[in-house]
Design a protein around this nucleic acid. Sequence first.
DNA 1: GCCTACAGTCTACATTGTAGAGAAGTTGTT
DNA 2: AACAACTTCTCTACAATGTAGACTGTAGGC
Lengths: 237, 237
Amino acid sequence: MSPEEHPVPPPTPAKKTRLSRELVLSAALALVDSEGLDALTMRRLGQQLGRDPMSLYRYADNRAALLDGVSELVLNELAIIPDDPDWQAQLRRIAHDLRLLALRHPNVVPLLVTRPLSTPLGLRPLGTLRPLEQILSLLIDAGFAPVDALHVYRAYYGYLYGHILNELQEFVVDPDENEALLRLGLHRLPPKDFPRLRALAPVLADYDGMAELDEGINILLSGLAAHLPLPGASAKP
Amino acid sequence: MSPEEHPVPPPTPAKKTRLSRELVLSAALALVDSEGLDALTMRRLGQQLGRDPMSLYRYADNRAALLDGVSELVLNELAIIPDDPDWQAQLRRIAHDLRLLALRHPNVVPLLVTRPLSTPLGLRPLGTLRPLEQILSLLIDAGFAPVDALHVYRAYYGYLYGHILNELQEFVVDPDENEALLRLGLHRLPPKDFPRLRALAPVLADYDGMAELDEGINILLSGLAAHLPLPGASAKP
DNA sequence: GCCTACAGTCTACATTGTAGAGAAGTTGTT
DNA sequence: AACAACTTCTCTACAATGTAGACTGTAGGC
């Protein structure tokens, strides 16, 4: 979508700037954003920076580390203010922000979701652990016991990521088509086996991701608040 | 590691059986389960089947299609009984089943989560759409309006996938270590920046994924039931 | 000047997916 | 049995990838 968000001269490399980790990573992110994960090869990135591919290894141990760096860079765009007294409002805001972040960098989402599956907590890029730490902080400062804060975090973040995946999966295949079935490519499904899905095509076609996210978060947060010893409010079973 | 010889039919020399899609896919799944996604190369899989790598292209158009096939195969292990009258119980059961499926095939989870992001709904392997269709069916049969069924599905499945990702991410790095910090590798985190996370190490180290999932699902389902025009009575925990 | 440290480059190689032509095997028809 | 029309499997080949290792350049301190 957007052509340029990062300080990168892709076609006209300003020949002799000294490279830096930030430069490399933001060029990598730009490449991923504009052409997808597969386009991020060492050679391509080197070319983008006007440098030999091998020079990149000064700034990332290998391709996997490069991917981790990109994840980290993206997650750093997420602002968390840990001393907001209204934890629910804060979590709602973060959810919206993260959703927008994902929509802005859809090609990075697979990384965000996948890389932690192959890296133990303690070995992850610190930037990717920051949201966890800060949300825990937020909740504990709001009065939750640490154990309960962890529960809230898990339910919240789990749902949040799940929603983002959901929303990104339901993308429209052909926006010019005005028949809902065709827009989503659902006409290929055998009507006998997928009657419900096909019938829901019009509803699927206009999906308000933000509202949906909000509703889920609300249900979850108020449910959690009702089940746990609460800091502020008072609903008690 | 073990040294590998090339001209050798290594573990499964089922020499002269005719290949079939099922055979190929289940060999692929076995390979992924035992050695991870990266081990699934055409050559390796061919070797595993005692066939030339090129023969595989008869059963999958390319590597991506092979991955899709593996996803499908795994999702087919999930049983959904669409005419259960108790929709909440059914959804709870499916959630537990899917969780166990994910624990049984952790290396496939990245596929389940990632492949749909690059394939429009209508072009996905039918097997991966079956759960969606059947859960919609289940909900509509239980009395939900189709639009509401979709809402419930999205919140439910979103949370479910989110939880699975969460749980798989928090794996233990060194099970022999009895100090919680070390078990999770958290000792590498700078104490100044990650006090909460480090303090929670003991809690993190013993994580009851099933209970956590159950609690989230309960909150979500009862919350949804309360917000939507309901078929039966509401289930109260 | 020379020395050391670091940044970037060059060459080389093993591994990957897969195109294209052909061989081997199977099945149907006579 | 013989042939033909298939399907299935194999061989060869190639371009692209990540990255090891040795090398070249450059910047600053003495």
